[in-house]
């Protein structure tokens, strides 16, 4: 039983290798946050957050991009949350666990979740704008162009498709935490299935529905590709006032200033500031979703 020196070295090397890759991950996160924070922190003023871009976007604030992002995620949630929740209710409460229809829906949801986001953008362009929008214009406006072009409505609906799987999976998980005994208790009191879902199951899983909403919002706030063809604008001098208007978004604003600006160096502080705002926004949203989810899981094990 003599210790093999060779084996020892191998063990140390492997441990060292695994540890260093783990440390590299931490380093990347730290560097990323530090660079963005240092570069952006002096830029974040009340004025920066509340004013319009000026002088060809080399000065001024990012208010339209913040406003557009907020509007986008609100409209997206209005579409995605009820739709996703209803689907999740069907899957957990009505469909038989291993029925063909349930399996097909789950397969479709998983597929939706892995489709590259730019494809959603193309789908949105083809379906919402070229098909639905153009049809609406021809039917209601005699061919006058209003809905058959990019706007915040089509962009939000496209984004809602992208976030739908997130909502469905979160809500399903939450619905499953409601104990079977409570459903039985409600039914045994003479409640119908729907009364049981509405008065017992949904109130018992409201925090899961919120988690799904927040995750969807955070995903939607960070994505650019799905709205690229469907509604986001390079620069607008006014805020969107109707569903048929275009809008600005934080993520796209960063792209525009880094690649399309006449003087990239001059816009550097604004780029950092915008990035910091976007990062903080998604970070806060994700943290709150994680905290909510943690509390649900804790409740489940109690």
């Amino acid at each position: 039983m003599i210790k093999s020196f060779k084996k020892d070295i191998k063990g140390i090397l492997i441990e060292g290798l695994t540890l260093s890759s783990a440390l590299i991950i931490i380093a990347i996160v730290v560097v990323m946050f530090t660079v963005i924070f240092i570069g952006g922190k002096d830029q974040i003023t009340w004025e920066f957050l509340t004013s319009f871009p000026e002088d060809g976007m080399t000065k001024g604030g990012i208010f339209p991009a913040i406003y557009g992002t907020a509007l986008l995620v609100i409209l997206m949630s209005i579409a995605a949350v009820p739709f996703g929740t209803i689907t999740a209710i069907y899957l957990t409460e009505y469909a038989k666990e291993n029925s063909i229809i349930a399996k097909t829906i789950r397969f479709a949801v998983r597929t939706l979740a892995v489709i590259p986001s730019i494809i959603y953008g193309l789908f949105g362009l083809g379906f919402f704008i070229k098909f639905v929008g153009t049809q609406m214009d021809e039917t209601f406006l005699g061919g006058q162009l209003k809905w058959g072009q990019p706007n915040i409505l089509w962009a939000s609906l496209t984004m809602s498709l992208l976030t739908l799987p997130v909502v469905i999976v979160s809500v399903e998980e939450a619905l499953k935490t409601v104990p079977r005994e409570l459903r039985a208790a409600s039914l045994a009191l003479g409640a119908t299935k729907w009364q049981t879902i509405w008065k017992v199951v949904i109130p018992g899983s409201i925090s899961g529905i919120m988690t799904g909403t927040i995750l969807a919002v955070s995903r939607g706030a960070g994505e650019v590709a799905p709205i690229l063809f469907t509604g986001v604008a390079y620069y607008l001098a006014t805020l969107p006032a109707s569903l048929s208007d275009q809008f600005m978004v934080l993520g796209y604003h960063i792209y525009v200033m880094t690649t399309q600006s006449a003087n990239v160096d001059q816009t550097m502080p604004i780029q950092f500031g915008t990035t910091l705002v976007l990062l903080a926004l998604t970070f806060i949203l994700n943290m709150s979703a994680i905290i909510l989810r943690y509390r649900i899981r804790k409740k489940k094990t109690d």
Binding site: E181, L182, A185, A188, G204
Partner: peptide
Amino acid sequence: GMVFQKSNPFA
């Protein structure tokens, strides 16, 4: 009506 083995009050 029915009363179950494990008490199951609603939250």
